[in-house]
Design a protein around this nucleic acid. Sequence first.
DNA 1: CTTAGCACTCTAGCATGCTAAGTGCTAATC
DNA 2: GATTAGCACTTAGCATGCTAGAGTGCTAAG
Lengths: 344, 344
Amino acid sequence: MLTERQLLILEAIIQDYTTTGRPIGSKLLEHQLSMNVSSATIRNEMAVLEHSGFIGKEHSSSGRVPSLKGYRYYVDNLVKPDVVDQNEIESIRLSLDSNYYKVDEIIKESAKILSELTNYTAITFKPEVKDLRLQGLRIIPLGNQQVMMILVTSDGNTESQIFNIPKNLSGEEIEAVIRVINDRIVGLPLDQVIDRLHETIPLLLHYVQYPAGFLDIFGDILERSAREQFFVGGKLNLLNFVENGDVEQIKKLYSLIERSDDINDLVGGSDQKIQVKIGSEMTNSSLVNYSLISATYDVAQHGQGLIALLGPTNMPYSKMIGLIRVFREELTRKLLAYYNLYEK
Amino acid sequence: MLTERQLLILEAIIQDYTTTGRPIGSKLLEHQLSMNVSSATIRNEMAVLEHSGFIGKEHSSSGRVPSLKGYRYYVDNLVKPDVVDQNEIESIRLSLDSNYYKVDEIIKESAKILSELTNYTAITFKPEVKDLRLQGLRIIPLGNQQVMMILVTSDGNTESQIFNIPKNLSGEEIEAVIRVINDRIVGLPLDQVIDRLHETIPLLLHYVQYPAGFLDIFGDILERSAREQFFVGGKLNLLNFVENGDVEQIKKLYSLIERSDDINDLVGGSDQKIQVKIGSEMTNSSLVNYSLISATYDVAQHGQGLIALLGPTNMPYSKMIGLIRVFREELTRKLLAYYNLYEK
DNA sequence: CTTAGCACTCTAGCATGCTAAGTGCTAATC
DNA sequence: GATTAGCACTTAGCATGCTAGAGTGCTAAG
């Protein structure tokens, strides 16, 4: 459908535009492409590309700018991930090389590193195994009417919550409750736990006068546990690409990036290895000027996680895709080493 | 130093300016003040006020704007806190009326409520008692090489941290460590704990090969416990008062509001009941266009906390001071009820 | 001490004109 | 048929100039 030369021009437009950020004119390409062809010819070819919807103009006499279709074609067919230079790889390794005591820390740090490396916003999800089960529930009295509830899931993650128990609740009563829960609920898949919990209320009533408060807390920390946890690094970088001073825009972006539902929507469907969503391909209308590059990573039996970069639509895709690839490798390596260190 | 009439004019300028946000001219005041005096007279008085530094102009022929000195004088001598209407009080009560299981939740929610009530940014600190001691330390094995360390301080607050222990560490060794720590460190004031901890390293070496990792974690959660915790509500509201599109400004503000050191600097020295810091009175240069109203609150033996509002210098002080007063009362009431419910 | 009146100042908004960059089209050339 | 030189045209961005409106300071009279 497109000729070789048209593809070269399209590629050049995208590469130039993603580095300079300015519309690309025919004269610039004439010198740069060294294909021994005049600017007029390039203009003609550009007209074809525009007609087919791969590029557009900001106004009737401006240079050309890639369209969504143009980016899409480029990302799907033309882009070659940049080779990341050895120094940068070293620096990633170094950044990941601390001693971590929790997976969460590694994943959180990853978001930070990725955002610093790219000057974009990074989002990282920790590895998740499907079919998560409730493996144990502890309740630890701490004195002062305080107790801590700790929930352990089958992938080894934990959630905990401290709360106060009313004066009239005795230790025996609590222990009875724990026994009931351990008998009837531990071992179940997380998504069934809540239902089963409600079934056991009548039973609990034998021991606790108002089991509702108890269940609230349990539900709370269960939800935290089942919710996919993610970390965001470099939030402030989003500001760099907002139309000058559009405060409304900034507000929308920020509330977006802080709501877990929205983030999950955003990265949803990323089951391919590396996926690029461009502008309006993301359903959220605040993101028309942004693109998301996401990559899943596998940590053997410990599940699959995801890292993603959110930047402007005109980001240098080849560079970023190269980088996210390398980062994924390094992160996987680090996580495997981590699990190996602590595994039974 | 200033005549009655001059004070009236100063007050009117500030009140108008803090509600309209626009410079105030002499004609406006002529009609508004109904002091049977022409605009020319008001102009003369304004000239005096300007000469004494209480007001200024944005340009040579603009209306008058309060200066730092003007605000200061107003806040110190003229302002009368607005009476908060009953509906609003009700709504505060209602917002605070959920069941909370932790003080932190109440304080965090307070920041949210305050920011929503005012459309400014709210910062809240939970009550702190001086002379905090380490009351207990638990280490709970969770299986999968995971343990949770829980630290309880004498004010009933807790911090916890899950971490993995290397394969070669046995349960007995851990228990021995706990014993040592409980013997030698529990009961000490928090600020002495770290020093004492280092003295015990030789002892620990009997049981654990590399106590350093252990101590790191302990130090970590100890620091979290000693650090004054605060919550920020309505961060996005800061954006409303930034010069149109000054992205650099926004970035500075945001990193400010997320660094606990900066926040502590900000509210530092707020030992008076209600304190107002205006513009450049705050040392941080990003805040020249902002003011901070802070109020301490007392919860009997449970210590003293602080709530604060960060808004533009031209915020309606009388309204905000009235509001923060009422909020403080309601919060104190809520906290007392809370402690009463759970106290032994 | 107060005030009417006036000259002056400054901003905001609008229209105007200019330049640089880039385009589309046509007619001539390879 | 593909390519190109040349030219008329378009647009953003910037500087300039103008006007209306709001506000001031000052002076001279009440």
